[in-house]
Design a protein around this nucleic acid. Structure first.
Length: 456
RNA sequence: GGCGAGUUGGCGGAGAGGUUACGCACCGGAUUGCAAAUCCGUGAAGAUCGGUUCGAUUCCGAUACUCGCCUCCA
């Protein structure tokens, strides 16, 4: 499967350049992506990194072999938002996080995203976090104060390198009150105390719970090692989350390089604004699925925009994506995929995951078997994702009826009955194709099976 | 205020220092009982102002606008 001529290039946030991707170990390419905090349904913006890094995962598996890629995506199941929901509903935290993880899996599966090789839950790795915090304290990079443990940003000279800012700049722009027990305003929490009504674990600093960033540092190290290839997530995580991860990992294990390539996807926009809870402009993946928008269509819309650019979700894009998929599903129906995807598609994906370019290359293909194989490399036209295309309605009887009416009309020159039936079918969203060969009925965009009942 | 990203034809959206991106829509033609689908074809672009160059939408620098991020709350 490995083709020595296939060279992947990726834009590295750390160096701000597009670089040739050279894995530390081609036998085990390692990628960590920041996953969700599981307190509610994933909104559409949460789905973008999932699809982006799913495409990367598929590409890496294609280039290095399916057994030579390790993909880790965490579940953050300890967080104050979860605590708040538990307090508000009276439900157990584990109950909430289990349910939310189930939703997440169902929704991301619907988008055709492969499950990562490991999906660690933060609460299963508290010990590793405590151990890492102890190392940081021992090495002088962290200090305990007032039941908290804080990371000493001044102890890490490169703090701010990823996001391109200096500690002094950040302090100058700071607009938040500073806790009195901090040595420096920029110091961030590694561990914080828990009261009896909050989830807590025993630690050298008393009952408490981890801060936001330490989980990823600890779990990435446990599952991927001190140094690994790719770390990904949304651009909004670059600061402070990833900056703090780097500080923690680099200071705890200075010999490891932590992640070599950092990749960040841009935000999903709605009406030109980032989709976020605080703006109230969000909707969930499940909302769309329930409205009848197939996961494959959502995925296709995502792929139309390069991951490094903001993407506006619009009804128009949804309709176009659906039309294209209908066309391709029709072209590839009953066809076996070719042995290899098209070189042009692979080349586009290897060029910093140019999914829009790859889609364009797909349009240029004229062999359905190659189209199918190439599309599947990107996670579309997959088996099991195309159920939406067929609907559950057999249109054959109506096609036969229309053909009979048409034959009669051709003889007697009265086309009114034919046109009446055709109009009804069109009104129900059916594409009517009449040719010398016969009549073909295909569910089109906006197909509504309920309206067929009136015809029958 | 600091840091980062973006600005391409009606819409979406790529690549490349000099030759048609592509998709959708539009228009013309073939085809059709009329359509649809399909096929063929035309037109249409790169925020503004400078610079480098024989030549820039593509490189460099400003300006404008848009978006994102800026310590436990997010």
């Amino acid at each position: 499967m490995t083709d020595p001529k296939t060279q992947i290039h990726l834009h590295n946030t750390r160096t701000r350049r597009k670089e040739p991707f050279v894995p530390l170990d081609p036998q085990n390419v390692r990628m960590y992506v920041c996953g969700p905090t599981v307190y509610d349904r994933a909104h559409l913006g949460n789905a973008r990194p999932v699809v982006v890094f799913d495409v990367l995962y598929r590409l890496l598996r294609h280039v290095y072999g399916p057994d030579h890629v390790t993909y880790v995506r965490n579940f953050t199941d300890v967080d104050d938002k979860i605590n708040a929901k538990a307090a508000a509903t009276g439900r157990a935290i584990r109950d909430i996080t289990d349910e939310t993880i189930g939703w997440y899996h169902a929704d991301m599966d619907a988008l055709g995203a492969l499950r990562p090789d490991h999906e660690p839950r933060a609460t299963d790795w508290i010990g590793a976090m405590i151990a890492m915090i102890e190392v940081l304290i021992a090495r002088g990079h962290a200090y305990a104060a007032a039941g908290h443990v804080l990371f000493r940003v001044r102890s890490y000279a490169d703090y701010g390198a990823l996001s391109g800012r200096s500690v002094d700049d950040m302090i100058a722009g700071a607009r938040v009150e500073v806790a009195p027990f901090k040595e420096d305003p920029m110091d961030f929490v590694l561990w914080k105390p828990s009261t009896d009504d909050l989830p807590g674990w025993d630690s050298p600093w008393g009952m408490g719970r981890p801060g936001w960033h330490i989980e990823c540092s600890a779990m990435a190290r446990e599952l991927l090692g001190d140094t690994f290839d790719i770390h990904g997530g949304g651009i909004d995580l670059a600061f402070p989350h990833h900056e703090n991860e780097i500080a923690q990992s680099a200071c705890a294990h200075p010999d490891g390089g932590f992640a070599r390539t950092w990749m960040h996807n841009e935000m999903l926009l709605v009406e030109g604004k980032k989709m976020s809870k605080s703006l109230g402009n969000f909707f969930t993946v499940r909302d769309l699925l329930d409205q009848g928008v197939p996961g494959e269509v959502i995925r296709f819309v995502f792929l139309q925009t390069h991951y490094s650019k903001p993407m506006d979700w619009t009804e128009d894009k949804r309709a176009q994506a659906e039309a294209t998929l209908r066309k391709w599903r029709g072209l590839t129906a009953g066809i076996e995929p070719a042995a290899r995807p098209a070189p042009g598609v692979i080349a586009a994906l290897c060029d910093d995951l140019n999914t829009a370019g790859a889609l364009a290359a797909l349009h240029a293909l004229n062999d359905p078997a190659v189209l199918l194989a190439s599309a599947r490399l990107m996670g579309v036209l997959a088996d099991g994702m195309g159920d939406w295309i067929d609907g559950l309605v057999d249109l054959t009887p109506l096609a036969t009826r229309l053909a009979t009416l048409r034959d009669t009309a051709m003889a007697c020159k009265d086309f009114a009955p034919v046109d009446a039936l055709k109009s009804a079918l069109v009104a129900a969203g059916v594409e009517v194709r009449m040719s010398k060969a016969g009549v073909d009925l295909v569910p089109g965009p906006g197909f509504d099976a309920a309206k067929l009942a009136d015809i029958a």
